[in-house]
Protein backbone atom coordinates (compact mmCIF):
# COMPACT_ATOMS: atom_id res chain seq x y z
CA UNK A 1 0.00 0.00 0.00
CA UNK A 2 2.70 2.41 1.06
CA UNK A 3 4.58 1.54 -2.06
CA UNK A 4 1.59 2.26 -4.25
CA UNK A 5 1.25 5.61 -2.50
CA UNK A 6 4.84 6.45 -3.34
CA UNK A 7 4.32 5.54 -6.96
CA UNK A 8 1.10 7.53 -7.17
CA UNK A 9 2.82 10.53 -5.63
CA UNK A 10 5.65 10.25 -8.08
CA UNK A 11 3.33 9.97 -11.01
CA UNK A 12 1.25 12.91 -9.78
CA UNK A 13 4.42 14.89 -9.18
CA UNK A 14 5.39 14.15 -12.73
CA UNK A 15 2.22 15.82 -13.99
CA UNK A 16 2.62 18.84 -11.71
CA UNK A 17 6.18 19.40 -12.78
CA UNK A 18 5.33 19.39 -16.48
CA UNK A 19 3.66 22.78 -16.38
CA UNK A 20 6.55 24.44 -14.62
CA UNK A 21 9.22 22.91 -16.80
CA UNK A 22 8.35 24.10 -20.30
CA UNK A 23 11.52 26.16 -20.38
CA UNK A 24 13.71 23.27 -19.50
CA UNK A 25 11.86 21.02 -21.92
CA UNK A 26 12.55 23.41 -24.76
CA UNK A 27 16.26 23.13 -24.10
CA UNK A 28 16.19 19.46 -23.21
CA UNK A 29 17.60 18.18 -26.45
CA UNK A 30 20.36 20.76 -26.51
CA UNK A 31 21.53 19.37 -23.21
CA UNK A 32 20.94 15.82 -24.25
CA UNK A 33 23.12 16.25 -27.33
CA UNK A 34 26.14 16.22 -25.03
CA UNK A 35 25.10 13.00 -23.34
CA UNK A 36 25.32 9.32 -24.21
CA UNK A 37 22.05 7.47 -24.03
CA UNK A 38 21.53 3.71 -24.09
CA UNK A 39 18.19 2.04 -24.80
CA UNK A 40 17.56 -1.66 -24.16
CA UNK A 41 14.18 -2.67 -25.60
CA UNK A 42 13.29 -5.96 -27.27
CA UNK A 43 10.25 -4.70 -29.15
CA UNK A 44 11.57 -3.73 -32.54
CA UNK A 45 8.85 -1.23 -33.34
CA UNK A 46 9.26 0.66 -30.08
CA UNK A 47 13.04 0.49 -30.30
CA UNK A 48 13.03 1.87 -33.84
CA UNK A 49 10.58 4.60 -32.98
CA UNK A 50 12.67 5.82 -30.05
CA UNK A 51 15.83 5.62 -32.15
CA UNK A 52 14.20 7.76 -34.80
CA UNK A 53 12.83 10.16 -32.22
CA UNK A 54 16.24 10.86 -30.68
CA UNK A 55 18.00 10.83 -34.02
CA UNK A 56 15.55 13.44 -35.27
CA UNK A 57 16.56 15.62 -32.32
CA UNK A 58 20.22 15.07 -33.04
CA UNK A 59 20.88 13.00 -29.89
CA UNK A 60 23.15 10.02 -29.45
CA UNK A 61 20.96 7.08 -28.54
CA UNK A 62 22.40 3.64 -28.87
CA UNK A 63 19.66 1.01 -29.01
CA UNK A 64 20.03 -2.69 -28.21
CA UNK A 65 17.46 -5.52 -28.24
CA UNK A 66 18.55 -7.48 -25.15
CA UNK A 67 20.13 -7.02 -21.74
CA UNK A 68 23.13 -9.10 -22.80
CA UNK A 69 23.81 -6.87 -25.78
CA UNK A 70 23.27 -3.84 -23.55
CA UNK A 71 25.85 -5.09 -21.04
CA UNK A 72 28.43 -5.67 -23.73
CA UNK A 73 28.26 -1.99 -24.81
CA UNK A 74 28.23 -0.89 -21.17
CA UNK A 75 31.57 -2.63 -20.74
CA UNK A 76 33.01 -0.62 -23.64
CA UNK A 77 31.80 2.91 -23.01
CA UNK A 78 30.19 5.02 -20.30
CA UNK A 79 26.57 6.21 -20.53
CA UNK A 80 24.82 9.05 -18.83
CA UNK A 81 21.32 7.76 -19.18
CA UNK A 82 20.24 4.13 -19.56
CA UNK A 83 16.64 3.39 -20.52
CA UNK A 84 15.67 -0.25 -20.22
CA UNK A 85 12.56 -2.32 -20.62
CA UNK A 86 11.69 -4.54 -17.68
CA UNK A 87 10.63 -7.61 -19.58
CA UNK A 88 13.37 -8.81 -21.85
CA UNK A 89 14.20 -12.15 -23.36
CA UNK A 90 16.90 -13.92 -21.34
CA UNK A 91 18.22 -11.61 -18.63
CA UNK A 92 15.40 -9.35 -17.42
CA UNK A 93 15.48 -5.60 -16.85
CA UNK A 94 16.06 -5.83 -13.09
CA UNK A 95 19.07 -8.10 -13.44
CA UNK A 96 20.35 -5.78 -16.12
CA UNK A 97 19.97 -2.80 -13.76
CA UNK A 98 21.80 -4.73 -11.06
CA UNK A 99 24.71 -5.34 -13.42
CA UNK A 100 24.57 -1.72 -14.55
CA UNK A 101 24.76 -0.54 -10.94
CA UNK A 102 28.06 -2.35 -10.61
CA UNK A 103 29.49 -1.31 -13.98
CA UNK A 104 28.38 2.31 -14.06
CA UNK A 105 26.82 3.39 -10.75
CA UNK A 106 26.56 7.03 -11.87
CA UNK A 107 24.38 6.33 -14.90
CA UNK A 108 20.80 7.60 -14.61
CA UNK A 109 18.32 4.76 -14.89
CA UNK A 110 14.89 4.79 -16.49
CA UNK A 111 12.73 1.66 -16.36
CA UNK A 112 9.99 0.99 -18.90
CA UNK A 113 7.22 -1.33 -17.73
CA UNK A 114 4.06 -2.57 -19.36
CA UNK A 115 2.67 -4.24 -16.28
CA UNK A 116 3.32 -2.65 -12.91
CA UNK A 117 3.89 -5.10 -10.16
CA UNK A 118 4.65 -4.17 -6.56
CA UNK A 119 7.53 -6.59 -6.22
CA UNK A 120 9.16 -5.27 -9.35
CA UNK A 121 8.69 -1.67 -8.24
CA UNK A 122 10.16 -2.35 -4.80
CA UNK A 123 13.18 -4.04 -6.31
CA UNK A 124 13.62 -1.25 -8.85
CA UNK A 125 13.52 1.38 -6.09
CA UNK A 126 16.11 -0.58 -4.19
CA UNK A 127 18.34 -0.59 -7.25
CA UNK A 128 18.08 3.19 -7.42
CA UNK A 129 15.98 3.52 -10.52
CA UNK A 130 15.44 7.23 -11.09
CA UNK A 131 12.41 7.16 -13.32
CA UNK A 132 9.64 4.79 -14.30
CA UNK A 133 7.78 5.13 -17.51
CA UNK A 134 4.66 3.07 -17.87
CA UNK A 135 3.76 1.74 -21.26
CA UNK A 136 2.07 2.82 -23.42
CA UNK A 137 4.49 5.70 -23.39
CA UNK A 138 4.51 8.90 -25.42
CA UNK A 139 7.23 11.34 -26.48
CA UNK A 140 6.01 13.62 -23.67
CA UNK A 141 6.52 10.86 -21.08
CA UNK A 142 10.07 10.35 -22.30
CA UNK A 143 10.85 14.06 -22.39
CA UNK A 144 9.37 14.67 -18.92
CA UNK A 145 11.34 11.85 -17.41
CA UNK A 146 14.55 13.10 -19.00
CA UNK A 147 13.90 16.67 -17.88
CA UNK A 148 13.45 15.52 -14.30
CA UNK A 149 16.62 13.50 -14.48
CA UNK A 150 18.64 16.39 -15.91
CA UNK A 151 17.26 18.78 -13.28
CA UNK A 152 18.22 16.44 -10.50
CA UNK A 153 21.60 15.78 -12.01
CA UNK A 154 22.09 19.40 -12.82
CA UNK A 155 21.47 20.18 -9.14
CA UNK A 156 24.19 17.75 -8.20
CA UNK A 157 26.38 19.38 -10.81
CA UNK A 158 27.55 16.15 -12.25
CA UNK A 159 27.46 15.63 -15.95
CA UNK A 160 29.10 12.89 -17.82
CA UNK A 161 32.22 13.72 -19.79
Amino acid sequence: MALKGVVAERLAGKKREVAGMIAEKSTLFEELRHLNLLLVEDDELLRNSLELFFENEGCRLLARGSAEEGLSVLRQQPFDVVITDFRLPGMNGLDFLRALQELQPDAQKILLTAYMNENVLAEAFRLGVHEFIEKPLSTDDVEDALVRILNRRGGAGKICQ
Binding site: D43, S49, K135, L137, S138, T139, V142
Partner: peptide, 14 residues
Protein backbone atom coordinates in the same frame (compact mmCIF):
# COMPACT_ATOMS: atom_id res chain seq x y z
CA UNK B 1 -0.45 -4.16 -26.85
CA UNK B 2 1.45 -1.50 -24.98
CA UNK B 3 4.62 -1.98 -26.99
CA UNK B 4 3.08 -1.19 -30.39
CA UNK B 5 1.01 1.53 -28.74
CA UNK B 6 4.18 3.07 -27.35
CA UNK B 7 5.74 2.83 -30.79
CA UNK B 8 2.76 4.61 -32.28
CA UNK B 9 2.96 7.34 -29.67
CA UNK B 10 6.67 7.89 -30.19
CA UNK B 11 6.27 7.93 -33.98
CA UNK B 12 3.37 10.37 -33.69
CA UNK B 13 5.42 12.61 -31.42
CA UNK B 14 8.31 12.47 -33.86
Amino acid sequence: IRNPLSGINIYLGT
